[in-house]
């Protein structure tokens, strides 16, 4: 399979925009698969969560009773794949009665190798989210 990058030296900024709840549709699950491949291709990968997508990061998910895979643990492992920025829209949280405390704690290691952990979740307002999108070369919506 020709799954190796032909132009490996080009690194683009990919933003994966998640707009759907973690269950009810397959978008969250299949978006995560695409995120991991983007990271495997050594691209500069970030995620954004808005609208019902903010529910993807809420604490205490367990989808066993509905016969689905619980998707949320995968977000905690993203730092190991070099994915260290998860932008969350403040207005989308507020509109759903959520606060930052309702979200999982997701961290990654310092890039310079020193010990300690850095929060991956960055809560931004709607205007800043617009700028985040403009700063990326590729915006994939899910």
């Amino acid at each position: 399979m020709s799954d190796t990058a032909i132009a490996p030296k080009i690194i683009k900024k990919f933003l994966y925009v998640n707009r759907k709840a973690p269950y009810g549709t397959i978008y969250a699950l299949e978006a995560l698969e695409a995120v991991l491949i983007g990271a495997a291709f050594d691209q500069d990968v970030s995620l954004a969560f808005l609208d019902d997508g903010v529910f993807q990061l809420t604490k205490g998910q367990n989808a066993r009773a509905i016969g689905m895979k619980t998707v949320s643990p995968a977000f905690g492992a993203l730092g190991d794949f070099g994915v260290t920025r998860l932008y969350v829209e403040a207005e989308s949280l507020a509109e759903r009665g959520l606060t930052r405390d309702d979200l999982m704690i997701i961290t990654h290691d310092f890039e310079n190798g020193t010990t300690g952990e850095v929060p991956s979740i960055i809560v931004v307002d709607r205007a800043r989210m617009s700028n985040v999108m403009a700063e990326h070369d590729i915006v994939l919506t899910f």
């Binding site: 491949i37 691209q43 590729i138 919506t141």
Partner: peptide, 20 residues
């Protein structure tokens, strides 16, 4: 083919347009 083809086409094109 695999998802790598999605990332690769993003790298190789000027514009990637999503029809959701």
């Amino acid at each position: 083919a695999g998802l790598g083809q999605l990332i690769e086409m993003g790298i190789q094109s000027d514009r990637l347009v999503v029809f959701g």
